[in-house]
């Protein structure tokens, strides 16, 4: 017996949801950012699984582009975090609430 593709999709959905919850509950901006990375990764897992289901490589190419985008995003994001820290020595995202609506 083999593994139905749906199992991979369920795993990816679980990882995506965990990442989304993490963004909502964590206060450290760096960890929130890591959770976004987790979400992007779960989407990649979905894409690769669909690539197998659809029997073409397009999904894998899409996942490749997602990795590129994620890398670029992390670079800018971490530069912002470092700068934010220099201005205020704390990762507390609630501090970012001076601007709350």
């Amino acid at each position: 017996m083999s593994v139905p593709a749906g199992y991979y999709l369920i795993l990816a959905a679980a990882l995506f949801s965990i990442g989304a919850v993490g963004v909502l509950i964590r206060r450290s901006v760096i960890v929130m950012f890591m959770c976004v990375e987790l979400m992007l990764n779960s989407v990649n897992l979905t894409l690769v699984t669909f690539a197998r289901i659809q029997a073409n490589l397009d999904g894998q190419v899409l996942a490749f582009f997602v990795i590129v985008v994620a890398a670029a995003e992390v670079v800018v994001g971490l530069a912002l975090v470092v700068n934010l820290f220099r201005l205020r020595a704390s990762t507390d995202a609630d501090g970012v609430g001076a601007l709350r609506a």
């Binding site: 963004v23 901006v29 976004v36 994001g77």
Partner: peptide, 10 residues
């Protein structure tokens, strides 16, 4: 500016 940028990014 920094907070806005980070919020935007996140």
């Amino acid at each position: 500016s920094q907070e806005g940028a980070f919020k935007y990014l996140l």
